[in-house]
Design a protein around this nucleic acid. Structure first.
Lengths: 240, 240
DNA sequence: CGTCGAGTTGATGTCGCTCAATGTCAGTGG
DNA sequence: CCACTGACATTGAGCGACATCAACTCGACG
């Protein structure tokens, strides 16, 4: 039986983690050929359109998702429906609370995403045996902690216009890490409601602040989602 | 030369991590006799009164602090002076950003604290050689990440009165984890300003909300800092 | 006592929320 | 081609929660 026919990943030279970026910075870059082969035998690629849930709040975790493409939003909801987005994850992050049996939050595709779904046991076994992988995941966790704490400052102490500027800055730097100069161009991977839920604001306030930034020629907006940053320095100043 | 005279920790049976709780749940509980001895040779106990800084924002990290007693607050400050507390740490937590050369935030004694100060290199060497220690520190980091994200919901989506109730709840559960029934008694380890900076409010608003909870017989306050929770269930409801 | 820091309480102001109307655009069907 | 629809976004008017500013209380300490 030729297992390579069953799954695109079941080949001798695994197709997993194809992109250069993912290979270099992501989890798979820490694996040797044997480990990649093991992984490929148990992994399947999953594509989810924007809005689909990957992991529900307080549901069992039986797999982790390695983001190959797209943006994932992590959110928590109060009983009465108030929602707060507590993080955005970009390729090549790993989605899922390590070592917990139950997810403390919802993970949802913000844009269309492709992920590699790894069974929990498999990943945890790989972690135990591979110090380099362990280090990368530890680094990701610590980076997420730093980002969460930075965002606490934004949520607790910044004004609405600083919040919106901060988010544009965050997305710009994540989607285009090594751009230079004053101009940045990108598509917002999230809706106005998501922005509001990330910033602890309402969609109306977000809209007003975006319009204000537009009026002051700091950014220009076309087709609702397409952002051109005209003056990156000014945007950074406005982010507080 | 009798080195045991030089440092209270330099003895054959190290006096480090004396308390039962610390020994069981803290970092030192993961160490064997040899490791404890190594640690004791390089560790010194430091006592800081409330308000003293342990690590400054964007200063070099050359040591980690293991909390033996007291409460440490972690905070970040914007250029214009606005401050946000991004975490509280209790015994037996380890203070300090692992694997970073520079601290992303200020760590300051909220109450009077005693810490064991461990040189960075020593701790990192111990981590490399001890899977159990590694796991405990990973767990602490992941727990801090969970707490930071929970707090983002509080900061972004809760009202002032829910915020204050949430903080009382947080402190009550940390200072007295396995209490039962409706009553809790504790002393606030932080000032009104700290509370305000943790909740993203002003001291006046904090004060008014505390007075309201007092008026509604949910808590009673004596001597500014001494809190008696009269109705824990009601407090939990108010926390949202 | 007088002073000082921490906390409380009151009066007033304002930023962001609420509610409601309007605009934009893609999709659908006549 | 245009009308209709529904999802999403923008804009405006009014209001309320929290901030700001200021006065006052209280205990600690010289």
């Amino acid at each position: 039986m030729d297992i390579s026919r069953l799954d695109i990943h079941n080949s001798d030279t695994p197709e997993l983690c194809k992109s250069c970026e993912v290979r270099h910075k992501g989890m798979c870059g820490a694996l040797n050929g044997m480990e990649l082969t093991l992984l490929s035998k148990h992994t399947r690629q999953v594509s989810q359109p924007a809005g689909e849930e990957l992991v529900g709040e307080s549901t069992d975790i039986d797999a982790y998702d390695n983001i190959m493409r797209g943006v994932v939003k992590l959110s928590k909801t109060l009983e009465d429906g108030r929602q707060q987005i507590v993080g955005l994850q970009f390729a090549p992050d790993l989605v899922g609370r390590l070592y917990a049996s139950e997810s403390p939050m919802t993970a949802e595709a913000a844009s269309d995403v492709d992920v590699c779904r790894v069974p929990r046991r498999i990943l945890e076994r790989l972690i135990d045996g591979n110090p380099e992988l362990r280090k990368r995941l530890m680094d990701q966790s610590l980076r997420e902690l730093d980002e969460a704490r930075d965002w606490m400052v934004t949520l607790g102490r910044k004004t609405a216009s600083e919040k919106v500027a901060s988010l544009l800055l965050l997305i710009a730097t994540h989607l285009d890490p090594d751009a230079e100069g004053e101009r940045r161009v990108f598509d917002l991977p999230v809706s106005r409601l998501d922005i509001a839920d990330y910033l602890g604001l309402t969609i109306e306030t977000v809209s007003r602040q975006l319009s204000k930034l537009k009026g002051e020629k700091v950014i220009s907006i076309t087709a609702n989602r397409h952002i051109e940053v005209l003056n990156f320095t000014k945007l950074r100043v406005r982010a507080g």
